[in-house]
Structures are given as structure tokens and as C-alpha cells.
Design a binder for these strands. Structure first.
Length: 459
RNA sequence: GCGGUCUUAGCUCAGUUGGUUAGAGUGCUAGUUUGUGGUGCUGGAAGUCGCCGGUUCGAGCCCGGUAGGCCGCCCCA
């Protein structure tokens, strides 16, 4: 016999888990709509051409590719086949792949539908994405992203709005967070210090590890990678992190001679505008070491982490949201000068955090109000009549399928969390009544069918 | 993609230095006076001990491989 098994990194969701996922989703969707965002959906499958080259080399390796239909090997190059050269062979046998995120499909969507869209285009999208990553806690191969993007406007009003939307969603979920913000312009200002774009890239990758390996760890690694000339800049960055507030960091930026250039000025102006527009900046922090991996960001970048003292001490998974501004993404698909900014909520990690801190409302339930229990086959028709009648009055209810033993039916009622059971046997049927039992108190009384509605809604 | 670790009943887990028919709790199921549960009692079913191979008279236990879970690296939601 074949043992049932799921592909690595994928999960089933039970009814209880779905209740909780929908709880999170509905809060987000509600906030998104209040800000005037509209929903779109795009296919799970995209052409590989659309996806490749947008996420850097690391990202490309994590794309799930889908084999072409039919006799896909017949068109493959003989040399690649005999050499078993997967890298060269893949483009010949796989034209499509599963989407890696929702931002690149959005860019494709915007370009393809530019005649129907009025800009600025504010859309939200709640859909799964796939990454061929090694699964771990908080890290799945299929997971949901909840994206909000504003395309076709370059004002930082949008950045500020997105920050506030993060705040609103997590306030409603009652989860404490901190939002880190930085600007690519500020990071680009370090280019003269590093000397070359290669050095700059290496520098960004290394400083991104700061919270793991510490200040000295980063300094050592810079030394090892031949970037010792950048250690002063790193030490300076660290000193800004110790400054308490945003104004002090901005002052420090103004006074640090090696990076005074246009790029810095642009970045600082935009950051300062965001801080001005956001109503409550208590959980918003300017963090000059925030780099973020995705190669398409050009302006502000964001990252959201849980910051809640109800979380278990040892519970740590990565960020639960992130995003930024991208000026050139639609350009790849032939639509120039369209700027976009967007952020993503990681549904699965938000779920994991809420569960770990026990922050889901206890009232979440999809149980029906009433279970109708027939004691004999001849009462089933009567039970179904009552059920239909109550349902048309908006009372969620169900008839237990079949005249099973009452014990079994009540066990089911308990397991599923019914508030009431209506017990029906020959006596009740003849008198046109039901024995209405309150499943919490255990009280039971014989009531007329017409009184069930009142009884249930009054208590 | 690399390293570590784990996998025994539907679920959570015991299983001593390799030695007869592999256990517990929970869940499931059937009884326990006619039609009353969430808390009683009695019984029952359920495991080729992840999978493949090896060592041995004999393997849940030792060895090799492989799949999956978890953890770390890489990267990220």
C-alpha cells in the first residue's frame, strides 16, 4: 500500500487552521479596501522568461520550473543530453515556472493591461507563491504573500500610506511589530567609499548579517573579503545604530564627509518626508544597515519584524513583511518611467507568530448553532423540514446524517461545538415539537417548532 | 546547494548491553436498562518499528544508501 505523503515544504490546512488563516486574511483585506486598493489575481504559472533575471542568481535557482507537455525531450539538444548538462538543457525542456513572488507578475500585469488601468494603480493580491528553498521553521516551499502596491506614482505619500497600513493590520491582529526603513539612495551614497559596484554588492551582503554575527564579525568578514578600506564606514554605520532616534541619525548622515553626494540627498529627503507623513512613528526605525536582497529596489526599503513581549523567548523566525520602491520593473516589459512601491505581508509567518504567542481569538468558530438529531429513520423527514425552515431564517444548522444512537450524535455535537441540539423522536414528531437541549448547560425542554428561533436567539 | 539531527498504532511518545507473540496515553469502535453528551466501567480493532540493502543463528536496536520532518549555513515571507 502506498503511504500518503506531501511534497517537502507543503502543508494541508485543516478547518481550524483555515479559520485562523481567513481571520488574518480578512483583517488585511479590510484594511486594504479602506485604503482604496482593489484585488487582482494572476496565474500560478508564468513563463520562465517573465520570472528569470528579476531576483538575482540566488532567486533564479529557487524557481520551480515546470516541464513542457508532450514529448519535451525531442526538441532538446543532443549534446546537452549526453553531457547531462542540466543548466543548458533546462531552457529547452521547461518554458514555464511557478511564480516566485507577486511583484513581478504585477509588473507584467500592469504592462499588459496599461490601456485598461488608470494610474496610480492600487492593487492588492492574496495568493500563494513557490520557492524551491530548503524548508525550515517559518520557511515553506509554498506560502502566501499578501501584497499591496501603488504603481504609477512616485510620491512618498505612498510609502507613508504603506507604513500606516502595516501599523493598522498588526494593530488589529494585536501583534507588536517594528518596521525598519532605509533608502537605496543612502546605501548607494557609499559607492565612492567602496570603489566599485562589485565591492558595494559584497559590502551589502556582509552588513546584512550584522544582527547574526555582530559588529566585529562583520568587520572580520570585510577584512577577509579584501574590503578592509570599508571598515571605517562600517564602524560609522554601527555608531549610527546606537543613536536613539531618527533625527540624530539624520544629523550624523549630514556630517559624515565620505558620502556627501546627490544620492544621499535624495534618499534623506524621501526618508524625512516619510517620517513627516506617518502619523505615529513610534515603531518605525531608520536602519542604515537594512539592505534587502531583491535586486529591483531603487528607493525606500522596508522590513517588518515581530516585536512583542508575549512571544516565547526562543521563538525566532525571520521577517514577516517587507518591500520597497522599484522604479524600473515595468521597464523590463517595455513600459518605461512607471514607478511602483509595494510591501508584502507573509501570511504563514504571521500565522506562526500568532500561534506561538497564543494570540488568536478564542471565539473563532465555524460551528453551526444547532444540530438536529433524529432518533429513528421515520423522523428524518421531519428533521429535514425543520432544518430547511431554520436555515431560511438564517440559523446555521445541520441534520445528523442518519438515525444513529443518540450518544453518538451528542458526541458529534460536542466535538464540533454546537450550542444546541434538537432531539426528535416519535413523540416530538407527533406533537410538532422538538426537545431543545442547551449543550453547555445541559438543560432541555420540549418546545414548539415555531419557538425554536426565539429560544436560540434569546439566549 | 552544504552540514547536523530525528522518523515505532490516526495523534503524542516508551522500548534497557541486538534475543520469544513490540507497549502506554489519547483518539476510534462496541457494550454497559428502553431516547441523553462533555467526567464512570468492561471489551475490541489498529503497527511489514519511514523505505531499500547489508552484518548476524537472530535487527525496532549495529552498518550503508534513500525519502521526509526539525535545526544551523545560504537566502528570504
Amino acid at each position: 500500500m502506498e503511504k500518503p505523503q506531501l511534497p517537502s515544504g507543503t502543508r494541508d490546512f485543516s478547518p481550524q487552521m483555515m479559520l485562523r488563516r481567513k481571520y488574518i486574511l480578512s483583517i488585511m483585506e479590510n484594511v486594504f479596501k479602506l485604503h482604496g486598493f482593489g484585488a487582482i489575481e494572476t496565474p500560478a504559472l508564468e513563463n520562465l522568461k517573465t520570472l528569470q533575471g528579476k531576483y538575482g542568481d540566488e532567486g533564479d535557482q529557487l524557481l520551480f520550473k515546470v516541464l513542457n507537455s508532450g514529448d519535451f525531450l525531442s526538441k532538446a539538444n543532443d549534446t546537452f543530453l549526453t553531457e547531462k548538462n542540466s543548466k543548458s538543457l533546462t531552457p529547452q525542456i521547461a518554458d514555464r515556472g511557478l511564480r516566485y513572488d507577486l511583484t513581478v507578475p504585477l509588473a507584467r500585469f500592469v504592462v499588459m493591461n496599461r490601456d485598461k488601468i488608470s494610474f496610480p494603480f492600487k492593487r492588492y493580491q492574496l495568493q500563494p507563491v513557490w520557492r524551491a528553498d530548503r524548508p525550515q521553521k517559518g520557511r515553506y516551499r509554498e506560502f502566501w504573500q499578501c501584497d499591496i502596491d501603488v504603481v504609477g506614482a512616485n510620491s512618498v505619500v505612498s510609502e507613508a500610506e504603506l507604513v500606516e497600513m502595516y501599523q493598522e493590520v498588526f494593530a488589529k491582529l494585536d501583534l507588536g511589530i517594528s518596521i525598519r526603513i532605509n533608502h537605496r539612495g543612502i546605501l548607494d551614497a557609499f559607492l565612492p567609499v567602496l570603489g566599485s559596484i562589485e565591492n558595494w554588492n559584497a559590502f551589502m551582503v556582509i552588513i546584512d548579517k550584522a544582527d547574526k554575527i555582530g559588529e566585529d564579525g562583520v568587520a572580520n568578514e570585510l577584512e577577509n573579503r579584501g574590503l578592509s578600506h570599508s571598515i571605517d564606514a562600517w564602524k560609522w554605520l554601527c555608531s549610527t545604530q546606537k543613536l536613539g532616534n531618527y533625527n540624530q541619525i539624520m544629523d550624523a548622515l549630514n556630517q559624515y564627509a565620505p558620502i556627501q553626494n546627490e544620492s544621499l540627498k535624495k534618499g534623506m529627503n524621501e526618508i524625512s518626508a516619510v517620517f513627516d507623513f506617518v502619523g505615529n512613528t513610534s515603531n518605525l526605525q531608520l536602519d542604515l544597515t537594512l539592505a534587502r536582497g531583491l535586486s529591483y529596489y531603487t528607493g525606500c526599503v522596508f522590513e517588518v519584524a515581530v516585536n512583542d513581549n508575549r512571544m516565547p523567548e526562543d521563538y525566532k523566525i525571520g521577517s514577516i513583511g517587507g518591500g520597497g520602491r522599484y522604479d524600473n520593473l515595468t521597464g523590463i516589459f517595455g513600459l518605461k518611467d512607471v514607478s511602483g512601491v509595494g510591501v508584502s505581508f507573509g501570511l504563514d509567518r504571521i500565522y506562526d507568530n500568532l500561534e506561538a504567542a497564543n494570540l488568536f481569538p478564542t471565539t473563532l468558530s465555524d460551528a453551526s448553532t444547532l444540530l438536529i438529531c433524529a432518533l429513528d429513520e421515520s423522523s428524518l423527514g421531519y428533521a429535514i423540514d425543520i432544518s430547511r425552515n431554520l436555515r431560511s431564517n438564517g440559523i446555521a444548522n445541520e441534520v445528523y446524517p442518519g438515525a444513529a444512537k443518540l450518544k453518538k450524535q451528542l458526541d458529534y455535537a460536542n466535538a464540533k461545538g454546537f450550542a444546541y441540539a434538537a432531539i426528535i423522536g416519535s413523540t416530538e414528531k407527533e406533537e410538532n415539537k422538538v426537545s431543545l437541549k442547551n449543550m453547555i448547560s445541559g438543560d432541555q425542554e420540549l418546545v414548539n417548532v415555531s419557538d425554536i428561533l426565539n429560544k436560540i436567539s434569546n439566549e
